[in-house]
Design a protein around this nucleic acid. Structure first.
Lengths: 209, 209
DNA sequence: CAAAAATAAATGAACGATCATTCATTTTCA
DNA sequence: TGAAAATGAATGATCGTTCATTTATTTTTG
């Protein structure tokens, strides 16, 4: 007898693996990888602990899976954004908008990907780190191009990249959609700040010190 | 407050407690609170696990101690900075310089204070959070004053506060003194970016989007 | 100042609980 | 019917913490 309506066409095993990922993501985001037990994940999935090992060899592999998938999704989403967007748009504007939207949509993934780096075994860390650098390179290339073209002015594009990404990635740590500012407000505010930050025509220094 | 009139003078015991804090700070910064065992801390201190409980009632209290002390030190350091600095200096410049210097000097404390918030029990979290908001208020007050005086222009000082602090606090996650840029270089680069970010005279928008 | 009493700190061994993981067996389902 | 999935129980290891006892230091005395 069917307890719940399930999609009969879908392979059940894939379904469980997906639910493991979902449960682990939420638990890791809330409590941290090291503080979450395999038993907690299993309980959330509604299964015995041993059953998880039909889908993931170890707890570490669940984390690895989540983080690599996140980085791959992020890069894929950027590539898709690049081809979809209107050709005249300023690349930095596009990046900022993309980054904010993606990071607000996938807050848990982003949070885990940042916080749990140190809990990755070395080889897994190296993979994730490579993807992270790939993503950073998008912005720094874009800044370097803009500097060459005279559209932006930054003394050190690599440092500016770090600064901008830190600024944007910090948003999900405090912003909760639905109360106060809208997503659009956030986009506008940060877009303005980032633009000014790299603007070629500096306003004069405050000059009273 | 509580009346602790008789202070038992400085004893050797304080020394062990200090070593526990030092060891715990380094271990928590490197591996995370949840991933570090009391036994590891005791080993680093050079003592048996049970001996730690002569100085801290629980593992949680070690974390609480580290985080509250960090926040208190941070606020105290700012107050000291405020009275020491030259009176003509722009307050935002002073804040940025202070924040960068302090956060580069105390990288482990800062990292733990940020990463381990979720491992604090509720009442401990509330205390730390209150101090954090107090520190944020320094910058947002300063921005609001500057906006009123026309020295800065930011649409939302609270958001700008978050953005600037995220940007600056991100520095210790990638910057290692001694190779490449000097601390002075970092200060200059970030000071320039922050100034531009809040500058009252905006350069014209890039205008091709 | 030295002996005795009091206090503090550290030891070493243990506590029950929980950890990630394994596995023989049973259930599920194409 | 056969393979994948889940169970339920167990593994040894490690977790934070406790505790009776020993060792070290400080305070109180004569």
């Amino acid at each position: 007898m069917q307890v719940e309506a399930e999609q009969p066409a879908r392979r059940k095993g894939d379904e469980t693996a997906r639910r493991v990922r979902d449960a682990a993501l939420k638990l890791f985001a809330r409590h941290g990888y090291a503080a979450v037990s395999v038993r907690q994940i299993a309980t959330d999935v509604g299964v015995q602990p041993g059953a998880l090992y039909n889908h993931f060899p170890t707890k570490q592999d669940i984390l690895r899976d989540l983080m690599l998938a996140h980085m791959a999704d992020l890069l894929a989403a950027w590539n898709k954004d690049e081809v979809t967007r209107s050709p005249g748009e300023d690349p930095l504007d596009a990046f900022v908008r993309f980054h904010i939207r993606y990071h607000l949509e996938r807050a848990d993934e982003v949070f885990v990907a940042y916080m749990e780096l140190r809990n990755l075994e070395p080889e897994n860390f190296a993979e994730v780190e490579a993807a992270r650098q790939q993503y950073e390179k998008i912005l720094s290339d874009l800044l370097e191009d803009g500097v060459r073209a005279g559209r932006y002015a930054v003394a050190d594009p690599k440092v500016a990249t770090r600064a901008i990404i830190a600024m944007l990635t910090g948003i999900p740590t405090w912003y909760r959609p639905g109360r106060g500012l809208s997503r659009q407000d956030i986009e506008t505010l940060y877009l303005t700040m980032v633009r000014k930050c790299v603007a070629p025509e500096t306003s004069k220094p405050t000059g009273d010190g």
